[in-house]
Simulated scan of single mutants.
Amino acid sequence: MRITGAVLEESGRPGPFAESLPLTVDELDLAEPGPTELLVRIEAAGICHSDLSVVDGNRPRPTPMLLGHEAAGVVERAGAEVRDVREGDRVVLTFLPRCGDCAACATDGRLPCERGSAANGRGELLGGGTRLSRRGEPIAHHLGASAFADHAVVDRRSVVKVPSTVPPEVAALLGCAVLTGGGAVLNASGVRDGEPVAIVGLGGVGTAALLVARATGHPVIAVDAVESKLAHARACGADEAWTPEQAAERGVRAPVVVEAAGHPAAFETAFALTAAGGTTVTVGLPRADARSSIPPLTVTSEARTVVGSYLGSSVPARDVPAYADLWLDGRLPVERLVSGRVARGDNNRAMEALAGGGALRQLITF
């Protein structure tokens, strides 16, 4: 079938992206879903820093590539071997399929799936190869989703079914921002009931961590260098909100600190704010050549723990329904993550806004 989507022609073009135009909206051919795959009509997609990291070259991927990995949609066709998802079901796309067979999949989310990670790196679906082409030339998939289009073919293991009562603009954000930020708090940190959580970096993932922490009964200390993000954090229920300098001056310490900025200075800030015996969880994705400096003596003398968490150490099939239930119960106001709406042709401007540091989650609706 013929679809329209936003294709990244090459990585690393300089900003402003509204002028260098790394993304072009073009017509593509989408093959039929295979036996274990689904054809999904995309309803809403979020623009995430992981998309920007491919655009600016910080996360190298094969190009040309149809971008987009955080989305929700409705199943229009299911492959012959798919039994548990039907036409008309609303599904959340997740950016790391789990094969269920490798050693990493046996770690309850702690390690990313080996086969899924390899397929993502190649720009392919979990079953191998691409279902996208343009004038006979293959187009790579982004993280098994390629959701900046009106339709996508995805592996069954790249989606989670949610109730139709969860609207698409909420459901889309469950698959990346909420899974990653919420999972950093609930899955990776070992946080105890009622313990305070500090969050460094209040973009989409950090704000999602804030919302999930509040929804599950944890006081939150929000930390960011951007004043507007601190104000938004207070509106989202943060008990305290400080710049890194203010937090240091006040001697802020927390038993659990989540770093969600993907920057070496933010990691150092998060470590400095962690109490003795506490846990620093890093969930941000910095440049591959980024380096941080922390005192190893402190790790030993204060019995500290530093934890890396990819996708919030989540098992999407388990965690997405739990977050959907929190939203349905009125406890998780996911809508607060949305900072703007994007017309389908304005992807480059949206990337520029994200690079500027002020945007949380911009949404494209189809």
Rank of each mutant, 00 (worst) to 15 (best):
A324E: 09
G262H: 09
A184G: 15
I3Q: 09
S20P: 02
L211E: 04
L38Q: 08
D89S: 00
V342W: 03
Y323W: 08
V256F: 10
D89L: 00
D346K: 00
G57L: 08
E302L: 13
G251C: 12
T24M: 07
L211Y: 01
A172Q: 06
T180N: 08
H142I: 01
S293I: 08
R83C: 00
A247C: 11
G12S: 04
V40I: 13
E10F: 02
L111V: 07
P33R: 14
D51W: 05
P286E: 12
T180D: 04
R287V: 06
M1F: 06
E87L: 01
G312E: 09
C105K: 07
A188C: 02
G121Q: 11
V154H: 12
V334E: 14
R344L: 10
A322M: 12
A353H: 04
R134S: 07
V223M: 06
T165Q: 14
A233V: 06
L96E: 00
G312L: 14
C105V: 12
A265P: 01
Q362P: 01
V281N: 08
D346H: 07
A184N: 01
R122I: 06
A276K: 15
A343T: 05
V85I: 15
T279Y: 04
N58C: 08
G73Q: 05
R13M: 09
G190N: 02
V154F: 10
V54F: 00
E195I: 08
P112S: 14
R304K: 14
G203K: 06
R110G: 01
V223C: 09
D108S: 13
E240W: 04
V159F: 10
P264W: 11
G345T: 04
V307M: 10
E32P: 01
V170Q: 07
M1C: 09
S20A: 13
C99L: 12
T243V: 08
V162K: 08
G204W: 06
R41A: 15
G12N: 04
M65W: 02
D56P: 06
D325T: 13
R318A: 13
G206K: 07
F17P: 04
E27P: 00
E352L: 00
V220L: 03
A208F: 09
A247L: 06
